[in-house]
Simulated assay, not measured.
Amino acid sequence: MLEWFLSRWGVGADDAEHLVARAIGGRFESWTGPDPVLVEDIAERLAASVRPDAHIRAAEPPLPDHLERWLAVRETVPWHKAQNSSGDGPVTPARDGAAEEIRAFDATLDPARGQGLLTALELMRADAARGARLDFDLLQSWQRHVLATPGPPPLRSLPAFAKGGLERYGIGPDTRGCLDACLTESANDPTWPLPLTARAARAFLDVCFFHPFDDGNARSALLTCLFVLAREDVALDNVRLLRRVSFQADEPQDALTLAGYIDLHLRETRRRTADPAS
C-alpha cells in the first residue's frame, strides 16, 4: 500500500520499494498489527524520504557485500579461544531441547511449518549418525522439508538482504563452492584441532551469511549447528539462545559470543542430565 502511494505521486517503483523498506525497517511483528506510535513514525520517515532532495538519497551507493565481510572476519576470529565444555564425551539430554523449541515456537506460528522443521530435524540427526559430509546438498535435503518444496530448493540467484535491509549478501559463480569449502571445515581436523563449540558456531554463521536459500535460512543455520554437534554425539536440552540473538557479519566478537552461547547450553545440559531435579 505504501509503495502504491509513492508510485501515485511519481516515485519510481524501484525507488518506492527501497524507501518503504527503509521506513519500515523490519519493525512489524508478524503476528500483530502495528500500534499507532509505530504507524506515525513510519509515516514521518516516509514523508522525509520524499522531500525535494530525496533523489539524492535514492542514489546512495549499494550496501557493501556482507558475505565478503564475513569471509574476511572468519579468518581473523581466534576460534581456538572459544569456550568449550564438549571434551567429556557424548551428551544425551533428558529432554529434546530442539524439538521442544520447534513445537513451542514454529508450530505455534504455523503447524505445517513446525511439522516440516521437525521432519528436517529427524533427517538431520539420521545424517549425523551416519557421519554425512556437511555441504550444500545436505542442506538442500533438509530445507526441502523446512520449506515444503516439491524438490530440493535451489541456491539463491540474487543478492539477499537481512536485518531490515542493513546487511546484503552477494552472489557469484563461486558462491556454492566457497560455501561447501567452509562447511567442510566443521569436521574435526586432528591437524588443526578446534573446539566443537567453535566449529558449530562457525558453521551456523556460514549459513547465516552465505544465506543460500530464498527463505528459511535461520532455520537452516540452526539445523547446521545442531548437526555439527550431533555428528560428535552431543545434543542440547535447550537451544533458545541460538534463535533469540542476532549476529553481525562484520563483528569478530559475535562469533565467539555465539560459541559461548552454545557452550552455555552444553554446560547446562550436562548439569541437568547429571541432576534431573536441578
Rank of each mutant, 00 (worst) to 15 (best):
M1G: 13
E3W: 02
W4H: 14
F5W: 12
V11D: 08
G12C: 01
G12P: 10
H18E: 14
V20P: 03
P36E: 12
V37Q: 13
V37A: 15
L38I: 02
V39Y: 04
L46K: 06
A47V: 11
R51S: 15
L63N: 04
H66E: 08
L71P: 00
E75L: 15
Q83F: 05
S86H: 07
G87K: 07
G97C: 04
A98P: 00
I102H: 01
Q115Y: 10
T119E: 12
L123S: 06
D127M: 08
R130A: 07
A132T: 00
V146Y: 07
A148R: 10
A148L: 11
P152T: 02
P154A: 14
P159C: 11
A160S: 14
G165R: 06
L166A: 14
L166K: 14
D174R: 13
D174S: 12
G177N: 12
L183I: 05
S186E: 03
N188Y: 15
T197K: 03
A198F: 05
A201G: 06
R202H: 05
L205P: 04
H211R: 03
N217D: 05
L223S: 02
L226V: 08
F227G: 06
E232P: 01
D233V: 00
N238I: 00
L241M: 11
R244Y: 09
V245S: 11
D254T: 05
A255N: 11
T257S: 12
G260Y: 07
Y261K: 09
Y261C: 07
D263M: 02
L266E: 10
L266K: 02
R271D: 03
D275M: 07
